[in-house]
Amino acid sequence: MTYDFNWAVLIEYKELLTDGFIMTLKLSVIGIFLAFIMGTLISLMRVSKNFFISLIGVYYTEFFRNIPLIVQMFFIYFTFNLTDIFPFLEKFASFTGVESSNEFFSALLALVTYTSTYIAEAIRGGIHSIPKGQEEAAKSLGMSYIQTHFLIIFPQAVKIAWGPITSQFINLIKNSSLAMTIGVAELTFQTQEIDSLTFRGFEAATAVTLIYLFLTLATSSFMGVIERFALIKTGGMK
């Protein structure tokens, strides 16, 4: 008994696939953006000279890193109705064309808190590898704490941590697949959808796999291009 492959269903149901792809993109792009900002904040808290601020940073990192992402999603989704608590989310949802915004934002929030801890660690590693002299030179020119960190330390740290940051962006794209468990109609959800409609799970999974491969490759190429551009600009490469 051999399996009857029917690849035509993919064309028949291509709308489901494109909808899923766009939903994954929305989760990923907004998630990456917010996770980067949050990760930056947390990393600055962790390297703060103030004992208690750095302690809070440690608490955040350990807390959101050790709780599985799916648990965080379920906790937020089932406990709170985010769109009730934060009415501005409704406006944001219609702006980005997202329905069932409660699921979307629960998943997004969990993705951001979870991934931001890893990005914070990457940036923190970058900050630690910058020679202390950089901070001293900036201070000796009379720069304030904010100026020193945002003009001198932070740009160099991000450059050093670019590889690990890229990995975390790719992880976020992969982890967005968990949103299907709370009902967000992203790519992996569509695999199941198509399978339940046509019993062609194998074909659906193949298509979705190729799309994830594309997303992963596209992200690392894009990040690589940015890295090379920055390197050429600062004379690291001729």
Binding site: K174, G201, A205, L213
Partner: peptide, 25 residues
Amino acid sequence: ELFRALPLIMVIFWVYFAVPIVGGA
């Protein structure tokens, strides 16, 4: 490279879809 590029849920689905096929073949 393939398994590092895929989300775990997709791998789970693959196993779910593939086992009957592999078994059948």
